[in-house]
Design a protein around this nucleic acid. Structure first.
Lengths: 218, 218
DNA sequence: GTAAGACGTGAATTATAATTCACGAGAATG
DNA sequence: CATTCTCGTGAATTATAATTCACGTCTTAC
């Protein structure tokens, strides 16, 4: 059973690795199994990658690059904050099926502890979104689109926290179950999620305490 | 080097296990190492636990029980939502040092995939908070303390998402780095975090769009 | 068409770590 | 005080999975 050379086999190998690592983690996944599933021999895997960990990092990198490019696409726009927020929420929903494994990979490094590379990845990955969100919020404040009594960096942080958890909820077993515990059948109702989350975010960003007429005082 | 019997040695063993599993995960941690660190022999560990996985579950259970009891304590109160929210945020800050390992353990099952027990744990752990938060929001709506145009379960979900991410940010390497990327030095300013997060939550819960006077239109 | 070089193969090797067990040592029973 | 029973010890065993390498096939250059 001899194949010629490898071309997009390499890509397939990475995809197989991603699937396995996403499911079992760096320590849990088995290199021999990955090679077999990818239809190549272990030997050649080691021709391309020094060792298991290096291979893992290659898988991780590919995952993150894909996520970054998707994010980049979704982030590009000059719309108002809430319009962008809605676009992003919908993107999370739409891409969760297709890019679920990559999100799982993201979730995996995110739960690694005590490894030097963790904070490297964090800095790399989060810097982009942090900058984008923060700048956007700053601009929105300057333009008078949203309240001006907030710390843009922190609000960007909270905003991303909500989106991140939403991603996990759609893609990772535990978080999916958790979301179902909270939301019951509404979790399957994409429109409901969009509108309620937008409502939540909109209020947080739009209003300043002092100018409010409390509904319950009507 | 012969000890008598084991008493709170068992507890120490669990704590040692928790520390290791929290750091390296089920697959990454080494049973022999754990036993050695706990000052007992591997053999006796296997007298008490069928195998590594069962031991892991014992560690997990202990972690979760502790977290649940802390949560229970913090959750108990008849105060208004925002007062409770503030108490919870502060609790997250205060307990993050002391209970950091348990949160890491929580983070670990949360990032496990494709294991039957994951959804069991999720249902068990999240049910409690989901019920508490949801009921509380429902009551607040009925009492007219907060807006009534929201889905209580979803808002409870979003609220817990924010708290969960805050916990992770204080306890888990990746999330800490991520928080720092977003918040810079403000992440060390506990009061700042409390007040901004409260501001974020307060608006989300308190105001309904139609009754707002936009500040930027002044 | 053939010899050298390049590359993939997968069984064999090795490393690591889970699990066992023959051996005391102390406690309990008589 | 002897006997038995209980329980901990840690080196030895075994299981699992990472890594290697002797071999074969294909490619290419002449």
């Amino acid at each position: 059973m001899l194949k010629k050379l490898t071309e997009e086999k390499l890509s397939e190998l990475l995809e197989t690795g991603i699937a396995e690592f996403a499911e079992k983690g760096l320590d849990g996944a088995n290199v021999n199994t990955i090679a077999k599933k990818a239809g190549i021999s272990v030997g050649v895997l080691y021709k391309y990658y020094e060792n298991k960990e290096e291979f893992f990092h290659a898988c991780l990198r590919k995952s993150l690059d894909i996520l970054k490019s998707v994010l980049n696409e979704v982030t590009q726009s000059n719309d108002k904050l809430l319009v962008r927020a809605e676009r992003m929420i919908r993107a999370v929903q739409d891409y969760s099926k297709e890019y679920g494994v990559y999100i799982k990979m993201y979730n995996r490094i995110a739960s690694e502890n005590g490894r030097k590379y963790v904070s490297m990845y964090a800095a790399e990955i989060e810097s982009m979104t942090a900058r984008v969100y923060t700048e956007f919020i700053e601009r929105a404040i300057k333009d008078g689109d949203i309240r001006n009594d907030i710390n843009p960096r922190l609000f960007a942080f909270f905003f991303d926290n909500l989106l991140t958890m939403l991603q996990f909820s759609y893609c990772c077993d535990y978080y999916t179950e958790r979301a179902r515990v909270y939301c019951k059948e509404d979790f399957d109702n994409d429109e409901m999620i969009v509108s309620e989350l937008l409502k939540f975010i909109e209020s947080a960003f739009t209003f300043s305490r002092s100018e409010i007429v409390h509904r319950d005082q009507m």
